[in-house]
């Protein structure tokens, strides 16, 4: 008994130490940097200032924020629409098929996401696979400008992030008791009512954790808009990246990161508040 407790405290403290070193400490560093000044010769320097936060209240940055939210939201919704039926179908499969499909979802992770994004260029470019097929089928008569557009960015994001939607949904739907669906049917609910009144509410935790897992990276993966969106497509991710690596304005990049983090923290807080008291509020 004592040993078991010891193990519990040990693993808990490992998790806490891990979180402090890899999450809290970097966050604190970034916060401090965001209040520092910056000039040509110094990446960061004293004195402390609020200037960068004030700079953020600028139409360009707001626009980028807005567009990032919009694209990430769009990507999340499409992932949900694509991922839910897919996860549902897999969850209801016989066991050996199920493991095969789960393996198929996971296999792409064995290749770097960056490389897979590069390879999407060959699919989306004017003489790429999609355009060739559409031309050959006679659906279009000149190549579509898919690459270097918001469409390409959204497609790239969906391709990279869809598994993060499917996997939590899959675990949630798998746990759904078949007898509940039978019971609903026995009481005269048709498929649509059963879905709306039983399946959907009971898989809401999966929907929310999947959406969070897709939305957060969709806002901040910088190489996808970089590679597929071209120079026009500046999203939050590459905005921050540019501040650090191109214009070398570390405090501004930090300030953007902090505002973004607080915003998401606020959203999670709202989610947590609405879910509190509901026994199904656990993520994944």
């Amino acid at each position: 008994m004592k040993n078991e407790n010891g193990l519990k405290y040990f693993s808990l403290s490992v998790i806490w130490i891990w979180l402090i070193i890899f999450a809290l400490l970097p966050f604190l560093l970034v916060s401090i940097v965001s209040f520092l000044s910056h000039d040509e010769n110094h990446l960061i320097r004293l004195p402390f200032t609020l200037a960068h936060y004030i700079d953020l209240n600028n139409a360009i940055y707001l626009k980028i924020f807005e567009k990032s939210f919009y694209l990430a939201g769009l990507c999340t919704i499409i992932c949900l629409i694509l991922g839910y039926p897919f996860a549902y179908a897999i969850a209801r499969m016989e066991n050996h098929f199920k493991s095969l499909f789960i393996l198929l979802i996971i296999i792409p992770f064995w290749t770097s996401s960056l490389i897979r994004t590069y390879s999407m260029i060959t699919i989306l470019k004017p003489k790429g696979i999609i355009n060739s097929v559409l031309l050959w089928l006679g659906i279009i008569d000149k190549p579509l400008a898919l690459l270097y557009s918001d469409i390409a960015v959204v497609i790239g994001l969906i391709y990279n992030l869809l598994p993060f939607m499917v996997l939590p949904l899959l675990t949630n739907i798998e746990r759904l008791d078949n007898r509940l669906l039978d019971a609903a049917r026995d009481l005269g609910a048709n498929r649509f009512t059963t879905f709306r009144k039983i399946t959907l509410p009971l898989t809401m935790p999966g929907i929310i954790s999947g959406s969070i897992l897709v939305f957060l990276p969709a806002m901040t993966i910088f190489y996808i808009p970089d590679l597929l969106g071209g120079s026009k497509s500046i999203l939050l991710g590459n905005l921050i990246q540019n501040q650090f690596l191109v214009t070398q304005n570390w405090p501004l990049g930090s300030a953007i990161s902090i505002v973004f983090t607080l915003l998401l923290g606020f959203l999670l807080f709202i989610y947590w508040r609405t879910m509190r008291g509901k026994e199904h509020g656990n993520l994944i």
């Binding site: 008791d177 007898r179 509940l180 039978d182 019971a183 609903a184 026995d186 009481l187 009144k197 039983i198 509410p201 009971l202 509901k278 026994e279 199904h280």
Partner: peptide, 13 residues
């Protein structure tokens, strides 16, 4: 004919 299911299958939500 309505069923009372094994382990009840009450809607938990």
């Amino acid at each position: 004919a309505h069923t009372v299911f094994q382990s009840y299958a009450l809607f938990p939500h």
